[in-house]
Computed example of a mutant assay.
Amino acid sequence: MTTGRAVRLEASEQGGRQTAPLPQEIIVIDDDRALLELTLLTVRAGGYRAVGFHDPLDALMWASDAEPTCIVSDLKIPGVEGLDLVAAFCALNRHAVIIVSAFVDVRMTVDAMRLGVDDVLPKPASDESLIRAIERGAAALPAVPVREDVAFTRRERQVAELMLAGNTTKQIAQTLALSPRTVEFFRASLLRKTQSPNSAALAS
Rank of each mutant, 00 (worst) to 15 (best):
V97I: 15
E25F: 01
L162E: 09
G46A: 08
F152S: 10
R155T: 15
R187Q: 14
I27C: 03
R94A: 07
I71K: 02
R44F: 06
Q14A: 14
D30T: 02
N198F: 08
V110G: 05
R147W: 07
R181M: 09
P122Y: 03
D111M: 11
A87N: 04
I77S: 00
Q158E: 15
G4F: 10
R157I: 14
L191K: 09
R136T: 06
V146K: 12
V97D: 03
A125D: 02
S189N: 06
D55N: 14
A59C: 05
I26R: 00
A102Y: 07
N167D: 11
L164C: 14
P124R: 04
L176C: 12
R181F: 06
F103D: 12
S179K: 09
G52K: 01
L9I: 13
L176V: 11
K123P: 07
E128Y: 08
A59T: 01
D55C: 09
V146E: 15
M108Y: 04
S204V: 08
V7F: 14
S179G: 11
A201S: 14
M1H: 12
N93I: 00
F186W: 05
H95P: 07
N93L: 05
L38R: 13
A140R: 15
E81S: 06
A96E: 01
F89A: 02
I131R: 08
M61L: 14
G166M: 11
R8S: 12
